[in-house]
Design a protein around this nucleic acid. Structure first.
Length: 236
DNA sequence: GTCCAGGGCCTAC
DNA sequence: GTAGGCCATGGA
């Protein structure tokens, strides 16, 4: 539940200028991240988005490499694996039984909706595609938004634990807001540009990994001097 | 041994 | 509606 005070802070401080300021600071500190899509194919991006759920990317990469070893990075390959064989293939990423089910469910959904034509499936308007993705068991808001942004190249801002933590440290949010509210606010303020959302989210993750694992603040980080300042303004 | 990583689902209350 | 439990490996 989002309280009136929190909504007020969100509305007060999360403007385009402040968001751009954070983006510039993170870019200056960490450089261009250049996440997906890059040269990756959309299905591989989708597999990565699912396998990295609550998992270090390093471990998701191991699971992807194990799939690649057996040409397992296609809808057809996922379709042909048994549930058990697929789960064993992706074991290094953890939660492997659940994630195997999710991969299977995704492929089954594309088969049912578009006869296995992934490009057609991903070409839907953003809101419609998001609803389609959220209807698949194992795909929640963060994974759906990551797929929209990094596989379908649509301007959907990804709200994850790092995003939440950064804005909480800045004092812009309380931390327990609904992801959809935070996403709506960001998307209402920022230019709807997939490249911007892609790089912004990548920078937030890089920042979160590099430093600032804890709320409320960490010394010497690129946005340290901004932390907590706005919360005091918003609360007064 | 403990903690955490680019979540999401289910159940009990 | 929401808090808590569960899924699980691997590295620091």
């Amino acid at each position: 539940m989002v309280g009136p005070v929190c909504r007020g802070i969100l509305h007060l401080v999360m403007d385009a200028e402040r968001l751009d300021g954070i983006f510039q600071r993170l870019t200056a500190a960490y450089g261009r991240q250049g996440w997906w899509p890059g040269d990756g194919d959309p299905f591989e991006v989708i597999v990565g988005a699912i396998l990295t759920q609550r998992t270090a990317w390093r471990n998701a990469e191991k699971a992807i490499a194990r799939l690649r070893e057996v040409d397992g990075l296609s809808l057809g390959a996922i379709r042909s694996f048994s549930d058990v064989a697929l789960a064993q293939r992706i074991r290094p990423c953890g939660f492997f039984r659940e994630k195997a089910k999710t991969l299977k469910a995704f492929v089954a959904h594309v088969d049912r909706r578009d006869g296995g034509d992934l490009a057609r499936f991903l070409s839907r308007p953003m809101a419609e595609l998001r609803d389609e993705l959220l209807s698949i068991r194992g795909i929640g808001e963060e994974t759906a938004d990551a797929i929209l942004l990094y596989a379908a190249n649509q301007p959907s801002f990804v709200i994850d634990a790092y995003t939440r933590r950064l804005f909480e440290r800045l004092g812009w949010i309380r931390g327990d807001e609904e992801s959809c509210d935070l996403r709506a606010r960001l998307m209402g303020v920022l230019p709807r540009c997939p490249e911007l959302f892609n790089e912004y989210h990548a920078l937030i993750v890089r920042h979160g990994k590099e430093r600032c694992r804890k709320v409320p603040r960490c010394a010497g980080c690129p946005v340290d001097d901004l932390c907590g300042v706005v919360r005091e303004v918003g609360a007064s």
